[in-house]
Design a protein around this nucleic acid. Structure first.
Length: 312
DNA sequence: ATGGACACCTGTGGGC
DNA sequence: TGCCCACAGGTGTCCA
């Protein structure tokens, strides 16, 4: 469930159950899902066993669970870091529930209420991963997207995983800086879609929401970012913010059996799509057929009439 | 700085 | 029925 709204839907689903929960057992069914963990499978399991989960935090498409241990196994703060890649799911199941296909890792835990629960990491393509990683301070380390209620005073919430330290704030972060991002746009000669997808400049946007935001802003994907006026850049970022928050409200976008929330249910934003996956269908604005171009080893969907490349 | 290719993977659907 | 190809929401790295 790869883009920000899908990851946020997962985060919000995990938080009530896992905040304050204690890990009782770890099963690794496919070691390839730990490829980003430094130290091997046994180290992963031993690190997690008995830990307490302090929160469920997100920035962009990265999720992490700050951990504490009753002993001194951690010399410095750590978190369980998860990324869904192209096809990852994080499911919460009752103990003994039917197995889920393509389950790669299972973490058993006891919720703070005393209720046992199974966290299942399911991933068809194994582009996603789980890893224990150090939490570090950066010049921009305050994460966004977490519920302020849960352990909001923990100093761990001011830290960010080393593996996500390069990820910029996302448009739903209360500290997202529109002026700073538009200033960066003005210095980029790359096409605007490539810039929207650059997680170092702003995070959380993927192929669906990039195509949707560009359709709303009537921008061609190859329009150089630097050619946009300040006002047009601000307008585009406002479309992005609205689309992302609307999709969060709908529980994310889902087309098929992949992309599910923590209960295995699909989101409803797919009914709101205007460009992505609409190849050949009439544009909802002008009626011209939506076109799909091969672009960066994937697809770009746009209206050739509404979204013209402006050579300047 | 920039753009492109490709690597990491499995599964599904269309055409023949 | 089977086979081959295109395609799928991400990220990181290497090369020109």
């Amino acid at each position: 469930m790869p883009e920000l709204p899908e990851v946020e839907t997962v985060r919000a689903g995990l938080a009530p159950s896992l905040t304050g929960a204690k890990v009782t057992d770890v099963r690794v069914l496919d070691e390839r899902s730990l490829k980003r963990h430094q130290g091997g499978t046994a180290d992963f399991m031993n690190s997690l066993q008995g830990c307490r989960i302090e929160a469920v935090v997100r920035r962009g498409k990265f999720l992490w669970l700050p951990l504490t241990a009753h002993d001194d196994r951690f010399k410095s703060p750590v978190a369980l870091v998860g990324h869904l890649g192209m096809s990852g799911q994080m499911l919460l199941r009752d103990v003994g529930a039917e197995p889920d296909k393509l389950t790669r890792v299972v973490i058993s835990a006891i919720e703070s209420s005393g209720q046992p629960v199974e966290f299942r990491f399911v991933d068809q393509r194994i582009f996603g991963s789980l890893a224990i990683d150090d939490l570090v301070t950066t010049s921009d380390s305050k994460p966004g997207g977490f519920s302020a209620g849960a352990l909001a005073n923990s100093p761990l919430l001011g830290l960010i995983p080393r593996s996500a330290a390069h990820i910029a704030r996302d448009p739903l972060d209360e500290d997202f800086d529109v002026a700073a991002v538009t200033a960066k746009f003005a210095k980029k000669n790359s096409g605007i879609k490539r810039v929207l997808l650059d997680q170092n400049l702003l995070s959380g946007i993927g192929n669906i929401y990039a195509d949707e935001a560009l359709w709303r802003a009537r921008l061609h994907y190859d329009q150089p970012a630097a050619s946009l006026s300040k006002a047009k850049s601000r307008e585009l970022l406002e479309h992005v913010r609205v689309i992302l928050s609307d999709a969060v409200a709908e529980g994310g976008t889902s087309f098929d059996e992949q992309y599910k929330n923590v209960n295995g249910e699909s989101g409803y934003f797919a009914v709101s799509l205007n460009a992505y996956g609409m190849t050949g269908r009439p544009c909802n604005r002008c009626g011209n057929p939506i076109k799909r171009d091969s672009w960066m080893n994937r697809g770009s969907h746009y209206c050739p009439r509404c979204q013209r490349l402006k050579i300047g």
